[in-house]
């Protein structure tokens, strides 16, 4: 998993994290709790199913760009799984 952030042509962050470390059964619990605080109702079980599917998909589709954001002030964010 790669998180790439630049701000007005200046590289800010290029973070590479193994996907298994970022999303797993343990982090599913943290994410579910955080989501509840944000008013998003996703259970730990639902997240686990999603995580399993994300990993399955990622296995066959390398460099899958999940999100790309270009802000009006020139910032650019990319999350590649």
């Amino acid at each position: 998993m790669r998180i790439y952030i630049t701000e007005a042509s200046r590289k800010i962050l290029n973070l590479r994290i193994p996907l298994g470390l970022a999303i797993n059964r343990m982090t599913a619990g943290f994410i579910a709790r955080r989501c509840r605080k944000e008013g998003i109702h996703i259970s730990k079980g639902q997240l686990r199913v999603l995580i399993k599917e994300v990993k399955k998909y990622k296995k066959h589709h390398k460099n899958w760009k999940l999100v790309e954001i270009d802000s009006a002030d020139g910032a650019h964010v990319e999350i590649v799984l």
Partner: peptide, 10 residues
Amino acid sequence: DGDHVRMNIP
């Protein structure tokens, strides 16, 4: 506001 968001969901 000029922000662009692209999401690719299988």
